[in-house]
């Protein structure tokens, strides 16, 4: 039995992922959707929420949901530098904070994460009509020149739109990277 357990353990890889983005972008709502499969109302994150460990096939995924307010961003580098994957959430309707989001994202990819980290960018709150188009966003957010393995999806944690697809891609990359 212990042999089987050891064998299983060896095949199961533990990875850490961080969920970043500005305040009210929808980070915690996405984490709660992943945990429960449904939309859950949330409150602002006080610093860091250590979410449930999600088991997907051969991965045990520890989720670190980071508070998006200015004052909490000093915590990001330490968590991000130990991370195997980063999910960056952007509210596609918050045009006023787009530049701030872009700068925060550039800071992460330039100085906080290793080169083999998988990056998933979510253009979130897609259930509300309008907002920035994905193609414009990719260009304006300087994603084209990104040297990381990355993908960008338009998502909604209210309707569940593209959440599965986005994280399927993300977890597949993490599995590939850790095998």
């Amino acid at each position: 039995m212990s042999f089987l357990r050891n064998l299983f353990k060896r095949r199961t890889k533990e990875v850490d992922i961080t969920i970043c983005g500005l305040a009210s972008a929808g980070k915690t709502t996405i984490v709660r959707y992943l945990e429960t499969g449904q939309f859950v109302e949330t409150q602002p994150t006080m610093g860091i929420n250590r979410g449930e460990t999600i088991k997907v096939e051969k991965l045990e995924i520890n989720i670190f949901d980071l508070g998006g307010q200015d004052d909490f961003r000093v915590l990001w580098p330490e968590v991000n530098e130990n991370s195997n994957g980063v999910v960056f959430v952007v509210d596609k309707h918050d045009a006023m904070k787009f530049e701030e989001a872009r700068l925060a994202f550039q800071e992460i990819v330039k100085s906080q994460i290793h080169e083999d980290v998988i990056v998933l960018i979510l253009l979130h709150k897609n259930d509300i009509p309008g907002g920035m188009a994905r193609s414009t966003f990719i260009q304006d957010f300087d994603l084209i020149d990104l040297s990381f393995k990355w993908a960008c999806y338009e998502t909604s944690a209210k309707t569940g739109e593209n959440i599965f697809e986005a994280f399927r891609w993300f977890f597949d990359q993490l599995m590939e990277e850790s095998s």
Partner: peptide
């Protein structure tokens, strides 16, 4: 309260 930039 939690403000836009942090606790206030």
């Amino acid at each position: 309260q939690m403000g836009d930039k942090g606790l206030e």
